[in-house]
Write a protein that binds this DNA or RNA. Structure first.
Lengths: 199, 199
DNA sequence: GTGCTTATTCATCACATGATGAAATGTATG
DNA sequence: CATACATTTCATCATGTGATGAATAAGCAC
């Protein structure tokens, strides 16, 4: 009962499409990107985009921007260890993930597109708050004892700092931020996060 | 030699177009917004958009998003006064401008669109760095004595914080941030900016 | 080779977009 | 009223878009 016929060998063209799509989405956002533009960038017939990604543009976006990162794992690594070091661990972990050239284009594209679209932005909001920053605040021995409103505020302030870091370093690419070594940023920003949690 | 003919009285329809355009650009970004969509939202014939804004979409965007804010004036107000209060003044001034319902939609639309577009983002970069944060750093008695590289880094870190504030409070609209009163944010974030300048 | 399956190409559809032209309508001046 | 100009409407163009169908080429099992 082995499968007949030609094998789905076209792994290279599919990869070309994915790569081109990542680039386009990252540079132009979701609305500004066209399937034909992607095909052009990948030097491929536009029909192939539909062939490999049934469901069209949205499916392609979802497939290409599927981040191979489990937030729970990230959080787990950050939360482990002494509470007085959470700040620097957050920043370091964050930067390590984002500096990984494997996932950076996808993340940048995701943020660029999410910030420009009403429905995507609500998903981003939930993600940032519930899956990331909220977890961090809830894991800190002092911060977790605060009122719910105060915890939300702390989470918001931390989110502010991390969003700004992402936007400044990876989206807007402010020179000084984009060039700065990870250690420098950890050293400068880590304590800020820590202060939001401690005091 | 008084002008003959009908007066350009249609001030209301023009206003409707402007308002609709602001809303659309703010919600969908530049690429995601169509002239016909704007006309539809304004309940107006699409041709009128071209009639009132010659030059099409880009001209309309430029006209509608022209921010009635002079950065120099803003900076001047912030820089005046004791250096140890710059941090809180920056944050307060910033929030006051952005909370103004007159300009908020335009600013949000501008940021949303800028973050999704390659060429707009470079303008945003120059603006943030040269016209805003750079000026602040250069005006601080301690920070201005630092090396150029260090000044850039400080500016970048401050930009991080302010960008994050904007994105978090006005674009993503994280609940705790969006609801927080100005005083609270000034109190929490002001010292962070100050620390970037002082130490 | 024969048959089956996939990859690739070509052609095309219906639709939305930005843009422009021309006519019709309204409103002021003289 | 007649003229002049702005507003508004209607019609249309070329182009780009996402999407689909059909045909051809290529690889693998039998």
């Amino acid at each position: 009962m082995s499968p007949r016929g030609r094998r789905p060998g076209g792994e290279d063209t599919r990869a070309a499409i994915v790569e081109a799509a990542r680039g386009e989405f990252a540079a132009r956002g979701y609305a500004g990107t066209s399937l034909r533009g992607i095909a052009r960038a990948a030097e491929v017939d536009p029909r192939l985009v539909h062939h490999y990604f049934e469901g069209g543009k949205s499916a392609l976006f979802a497939a290409v921007m599927a981040i191979p990162i489990d937030p729970a794992t990230i959080i787990a690594g950050v939360v482990l260890g002494p509470p007085e070091g959470i700040g620097v661990r957050v920043v370091r972990t964050f930067l390590t993930v984002w500096d990984n050239p494997e996932v950076q284009p996808a993340l940048v594209g995701l943020v660029r597109s999410a910030l420009a679209d009403e429905v995507l932005v609500s998903q981003l909001r939930d993600y940032v708050y519930r899956d990331l920053v909220g977890q961090i605040v809830a894991a800190h021995p002092h911060a977790r004892t605060l009122s719910a409103a105060e915890q939300s505020l702390r989470a918001g302030l931390i989110a502010t700092q991390m969003l700004g870091l992402v936007v400044g370093r990876y989206v807007v690419e402010l020179p000084a931020l984009a060039k700065a070594p990870v250690d420098t940023l950890v050293e400068r920003i880590g304590p800020i996060i820590q202060a939001h949690l401690d005091r």
